[in-house]
């Protein structure tokens, strides 16, 4: 039987990053294993109340008004055994003028029958900046079901930026739903980078409503499916506010017997608004492939490099997260 501290270490070690750094005094953190909060360390300006449920954890998180939290707040959710259910109910409020970055790791390294459910309601108040970067660590068996559903309100002149990354291990089943409504002069950026292998099933449904005047939003989904994996992506961007503008970028690469569907839905409900979209779906680009093969790579090696490149495209906070993880922040 491991102690709580040992369990924290065991969980963090699966992330493949410098864990001493994640445990340092100036890094706020919450660690949840199944339905237990096994680690909690706060910094000034961050309030967390967490209740353990029968099948998970319910947490109220608040970043106080005008507070800028210097280093990313680290969340770690995990289920270490092969089986388990983890339901996370998150109520988060980034108060007016606050600035924060959350790095969330979700780790299920041995999963054969694990369910991770996330129900989140997030409010980013006026003039606040809130970045949520979620990175998944899955084992090779594909026995994980990940169901994150979130409703987000972004206030006037506020910024909400999120990235979901699952590029190592077998994705399992993902059913991802995010709905965002944004205010005047707000900015919304949502990125998903997912790799599916074997029998993985990836479903993404992202909806952004640019309600406010001069609000802006970008939805980016880059997915690779190999073997028998399937991906269904629906990106919906609706520009309602005057002079609102948005862009949808969906790329899906299919290798082997993988199957992919992309449905970009772009709507403009105001004559001064502007929305663009690009969708590319299919096999690896032939010119890229032969360029790398003319450098001595086999077709499989070249394919991996091209997919790696497409999946590595991060949103603008990606470098900040990498600096944080490499202790150079």
């Amino acid at each position: 039987m491991s102690t709580t501290k040992e369990l924290v270490i065991e969980m963090l070690k699966t992330l493949g990053v410098d864990i001493n750094h994640l445990l340092s005094e100036d890094v706020a953190r919450i660690q949840v294993h199944k339905n237990k909060v096994i680690g909690l360390h706060l910094v000034p300006g961050l309030k967390v109340e967490a209740d353990e449920l029968e099948d998970g954890v319910e947490a109220n998180v608040e970043i106080e008004e005008g507070v800028r939290i210097e280093k990313p707040i680290h969340l770690c959710f995990g289920v270490m055994p092969e089986e388990g259910l983890q339901r996370i109910r998150l109520h988060l409020r980034a108060r007016e003028g606050s600035k924060s970055i959350i790095l969330a790791h979700c780790t299920f390294p041995k999963a054969r029958n694990v369910k991770h459910l996330m129900e989140a309601d997030i409010v980013v108040e006026d003039n606040a900046q809130y970045v949520y970067y979620e990175r998944h660590v899955h084992g090779p068996y594909g026995g994980v079901e990940v169901v994150p559903h979130a409703k987000i309100e972004v206030g006037n002149n506020a910024e909400f930026s999120t990235e979901f990354e699952l590029i190592n291990g077998s994705a399992g089943k993902i059913n991802f739903q995010y709905e965002v409504k944004s205010g005047n002069f707000s900015k919304v950026e949502m990125t998903a980078r997912i790799s599916g292998i074997k029998e993985d099933s990836i479903k993404l449904d992202e909806q952004v409503e640019l309600i406010g005047k001069e609000s802006a939003g970008v939805i980016t989904s880059h997915i690779a499916v190999r073997d028998n994996a399937i991906a269904e992506v629906k990106n919906t961007l609706t520009a309602i506010g005057p002079y609102s503008k948005g862009h949808v970028d969906c790329k899906e690469i299919v290798v082997g017997m993988g199957k992919a569907t992309a449905v970009p839905v772009v709507s403009v409900l105001n004559p001064s608004a502007h929305v663009t979209h690009e969708a590319a779906i299919g096999s690896v680009d032939a010119k890229q492939l032969v360029t790398l093969m003319a450098r001595g790579l086999t077709e499989d090696e070249a394919t991996e490099i091209i997919i790696e490149g497409i999946l590595s495209k991060r949103h603008k906070w990606g470098d900040t997260i990498e600096k944080f993880l490499s202790s150079t922040y």
Binding site: K287, Q288, M293, A294, E299, I305, E308, L311
Partner: peptide, 24 residues
């Protein structure tokens, strides 16, 4: 020989319009 074997022997090609690689 396939293209990569030719390349490994020291033969290669630069395109008129080089490919673009997102993220690479």
């Amino acid at each position: 020989l396939p293209v990569y074997e030719r390349a490994r022997r020291g033969l290669t090609l630069a395109w008129q319009e080089p490919a673009r690689f997102e993220g690479l």
